[in-house]
Simulated assay, not measured.
Amino acid sequence: MLRIERALDILSLLCMIAASICLVVLVATFGWLVFGRYVLNATPTWVEQLALLLICYITYLGAAVGIHENTHLGVTLFRDMMGQRISVFLKLVIDIVLAGFGLLMMLASIELVMFGWDTLLPMLNIPESFRSLSAALCGGLVFVFAGLRAVFRFICLIMGRPYIEKGIV
């Protein structure tokens, strides 16, 4: 279990690095946009399309990392008000629901990837599918992160040990 958790931590780190690189490229391209518009008097028109594409990857990769690190938006008031046994059960159910959502998101997004492969993004001349690919990646990552956490919770529940939460202080 520890090896798998370590591999998931590395995968999460790689996602965060990729999202960070996308953010740096986004800032740099907007710097070029401002320079081109106000200094060269020639606005680079491709920046907007690239920005939309990069925002998809930044958002979706960040969301998947949030699921892994347990820092995603969650309303825990009712779950925490319950007793220990009910709370453990609810956390398991939440992880299963998240994994199911991730799987559905991945499958629906794969259809979008296949559908948009023949359409090109304006100004960038790359397939529209690259935009949908970010959602498919996020869905797959959410499925893996939440699904394996559900499996680990279940194993710990069977063995009578507490599951150590990520991101919980």
Rank of each mutant, 00 (worst) to 15 (best):
L2C: 01
R3T: 01
E5Q: 14
I10Y: 07
L11A: 08
L11Y: 05
L13S: 06
M16D: 13
S20N: 04
I21V: 08
C22K: 02
C22P: 00
L23I: 00
V25H: 02
A28H: 00
L33M: 11
L33S: 12
L33V: 02
V34K: 09
V34Y: 13
N41C: 07
A42V: 07
A42E: 07
A42F: 04
T43H: 07
P44E: 02
W46Y: 03
L54N: 00
C56I: 04
Y57F: 10
Y60S: 04
G66A: 11
H68I: 03
H68T: 01
H68Q: 10
E69V: 08
T71G: 01
L73E: 08
L77R: 06
L77K: 11
F78H: 14
M81S: 14
M82K: 13
G83N: 10
G83H: 12
G83P: 15
Q84K: 15
R85F: 11
I86R: 14
I86S: 14
I86W: 15
V88G: 05
V88S: 15
V93M: 12
I94Y: 13
D95L: 10
I96S: 13
L98D: 10
A99N: 04
F101S: 12
M106D: 00
I110E: 03
E111P: 00
V113M: 06
F115W: 02
G116N: 09
D118I: 05
L121M: 11
P122V: 04
M123F: 03
M123A: 12
L124W: 03
L124H: 13
S129E: 02
S129V: 07
S132R: 02
L133H: 01
S134C: 08
S134Y: 00
A135D: 02
A136I: 07
C138M: 07
G140N: 02
V144R: 08
F145I: 03
L148G: 09
A150S: 13
V151N: 06
F152K: 11
F154M: 11
C156F: 12
R161V: 13
Y163T: 12
K166R: 11
G167L: 10
I168M: 12
V169P: 15
V169L: 14
